[in-house]
């Protein structure tokens, strides 16, 4: 029964959600919205589990003085600090400290991590764009054409390059993307059917 009940729940709810897509009646919509609301509620409770997991792992590392245990102190300080600053009786999310840490720590850190992409793209491109084979050469040339389309110093060549870049984006690139997306779509349907029919049970933590 330990396995059968979850499989039954998955089958019934999966079937309902599949049928609901075709039934616009407000009763079916209300049930769908009810399920969505419960998804949020379950997610919030799961967040509590996640926070507990992080606290437990960090405290264990500090207690055992595992290598680099100091980073665990930073994790806990950051997490509890923002929670305390955001408490409503201390001003909530518009309090000076919360806003300060959000504006001057969190936003710059997020933006900085995203900015690392520029450097990593350079090193990845440098490593990957080598004319090893004919196809790799095509990739290399396409990359060069596309990067040059932003360059304002090409003069009249710039218009031709822009047109070629647009063709590369709108024809072969889009065709390949669409093919991958069609394959993904069929894969999603197949995997969803496998989950609903109980063939795929990886989400239950077992085969």
């Amino acid at each position: 029964m330990k396995k059968e009940i979850p499989l039954l729940i998955v089958f019934v709810s999966g079937l309902f959600m599949a049928v609901q897509f075709f039934v616009p009646h407000s009763t079916s919509e209300k049930i769908y919205e009810f399920v969505m609301e419960w998804t949020i509620i379950i997610g919030i409770f799961a967040l509590a589990l996640g926070i507990w997991s992080l606290i437990r792992v960090s405290v264990n590392r500090i207690r055992r003085r595992t290598p680099n245990w100091q980073y665990s102190i930073v994790i806990l300080a950051g997490m509890f600090g923002m929670v305390i600053f955001g408490l409503s009786f201390l001003g909530g999310v518009r309090s000076y400290m919360f806003r300060h840490f959000f504006d001057y720590v969190m936003i710059p850190l997020h933006a900085t991590m995203f900015s690392l992409l520029a450097f990593f793209i350079a090193s990845a491109a440098f490593r990957a764009f080598r004319a090893r084979t004919a196809l790799a050469t095509v990739l290399l040339l396409s990359a060069l054409i596309l990067m040059l389309r932003f360059n304002p110093y090409l003069g009249p060549l710039g218009d031709q390059d822009a047109a070629l870049a647009a063709w590369i984006l709108n024809v072969p690139n889009l065709a390949a993307k669409r093919a991958i997306i069609i394959g993904i779509g069929l894969g999603i349907v197949a995997t969803a059917l496998k989950v609903i029919l109980g063939i795929e049970r990886g989400y239950m933590g077992s085969d």
Binding site: F126, F129, R130, L140, L144, M147, F150, N151, P152, Y153
Partner: peptide, 16 residues
Amino acid sequence: QVWTHIVIILFIIIGN
């Protein structure tokens, strides 16, 4: 962006 693109392109060409 323009100049970093130029530098990356140069690196790729020289690397090749």
